[in-house]
Amino acid sequence: MIGFILKRLAWMAITLWVVFTASFFLMRAVPGGPLDQERALAPEIEQNLKQRYHLDEPIYRQYLRELGNVARLDLGYSFRLADFRVGEIIAQGFPISASLGIVALGFALSLGLVAGIVSAVRRQTLIDFSLMLLATVGIALPNFVIAGIMIILFVFLVPVFPAAGWGTLRHLILPGFCLGAPFAAYVARLTRTGMLDVLSQDYIRTAYAKGLATRTVILRHALKGAMLPVVSFLGPAIAGILTGSLVVEQIFAIPGLGAHFIQAATGRDYTLAMGLVLIYTTLLYTMNMLVDISYTYLDPRVKLE
């Protein structure tokens, strides 16, 4: 186990370096730079700024300098939000996006698993068809439509939740649901498929032949196997969900990371964009590692490498 984790961490370092290098050069390859603004800067000011951000150096020097900084976990100053270090921006936004993400994940898992299991057990019935229709709608509808519906229902018609803002758990429920809904739909479909697959296995028939109740057969004998596809989906899904969503955060006025992703890219904020890309990669990698580890707990036949 320790060996597996160390190996994975080594790979993660290599991956991060590749991602860093690719992002570094790609960002500088697209036209436009962080100092481009509607009004041209005075030449000497521009020169000063370039010096401050080392943009006047040859590109390989810039690359090595930045690589060195990043390796020391120093992401530097943001170009656009010049008073802030990238580390500070992320440290401020990430916990907010992550809490929203955790609530969303709670919705996705609880709704998705229950709907998937019920659908599979009651397959080919009205319940199954309705739930799967709902899941298709959940995947097809864009976030902002779901958000609109939720706001009409729970802010205007039955005012139980605040329309927007940040601070208490109540502020998290509506945006969490909107963010989690498409994931819930995916989880429901994966659970249903996985469950149907497992329920047709011989060992399920054995379990019924032993006189076990349906509930025991489902929860004890079938659920673990049915969860495997859901767990592999959850790795990347969690990484995405924790790093925030532009749409949901904008609609509900939540100061998370979501907006930064877009602004950093459009504003050619090299340092902030790099920081976000690296955070996302790290998260993705960690989640996939956790998925692999949890596989060995779910399925005794799986060994870590």
Binding site: Q201, Y203, K210, G211, L212, H221, G225, D299
Partner: peptide, 23 residues
């Protein structure tokens, strides 16, 4: 269910697939 596995029990054809691999 009270009879199955208690008073009438069954053995199946394929022992490779009839036992639950997760338990």
């Amino acid at each position: 269910a009270a009879i199955r596995g208690h008073r009438i029990a069954m053995i199946f054809q394929d022992p490779m697939t009839s036992l639950n691999p997760f338990l």
